[in-house]
Design a protein around this nucleic acid. Structure first.
Lengths: 125, 125
DNA sequence: ATTGCAGCTCACATCTGTGTCAGGTTTTAG
DNA sequence: CTAAAACCTGACACAGATGTGAGCTGCAAT
């Protein structure tokens, strides 16, 4: 599979795939003409990378965790890092829930005119 | 209250407070010597800003929502924006939960030697 | 009055994942 | 064989919140 195919299958830009490789998150085999070749497992790998990116992990953090997943290697350091990231994500979720609750509060308030809130027709910029 | 006091009370850097003002999120009254003066309500305001920042809202988004909160003004646009941000946060929470579940899966696997996973002593860089 | 800390503005640096352009090579279709 | 499409490297740009430094002014205590 060439890079464009992988990009198509994962929905990730070609540029990003090259960047992942540069960051050591993704490997490829180079064919005779120097073009990257990927096997099917790369799709799963890219999906995982995206998953972790979407959770706010940096490429460096992902790089640190990948050996656990891929080569199934577990070191004391990697276990610590995994736990730390898990905690961070938990905290992040808590932040988001608090923010969502706050927004809900505001929405409730601003959605009911009887709350005493001022309804106007146009945006106040 | 001067800017340093506000920074102290909120745990936000002085630089950031000036930035918030630049972005129209925070206002101050200038004393005779051009120094910013804040009243007590500024603390609450900065806390709110931080809450929204931590939920991933941009300063522009926050700027758009603040009138709803502060001057209690509700426009069709602001109600739409509020709902949109709420949805975005919901999606972000879902992403995080998925990532956390994935990490849990990995942690479970890498934490139990009988899983067939390789335990090594040093990090594989 | 002097010293020293706090504040002011302006401006440039940082970090990260991506976009984008240039200039060149490989692969593929016709 | 040729043209188009895909790929390659390298490099620069961006956005956004914050860090940092220079050079100057205000304020408080001695």
């Amino acid at each position: 599979m060439r890079i464009g195919d992988l990009a198509g299958k994962t929905g990730v830009a070609v540029r990003s795939l090259r960047y992942y490789e540069e960051q050591g998150l993704l490997t490829s085999v180079r064919g005779c003409g120097g073009q990257r070749q990927y096997d099917e497992s790369a799709v799963e790998r890219v999906d995982l990378i995206q998953l972790l990116y979407s959770a706010g992990l940096s490429s460096k953090a992902i790089r640190g965790l990948l050996p656990c997943v891929v080569s199934k290697a577990s070191t004391p350091e990697s276990r610590t890092a995994l736990a730390a990231e898990r905690e961070r994500i938990d905290g992040q979720i808590a932040d988001l829930v608090r923010a969502r609750d706050k927004l809900d509060e505001i929405i409730l308030f601003s959605g009911s005119p009887e709350s005493g809130c001022t309804w106007v027709e146009t945006a106040q910029v």
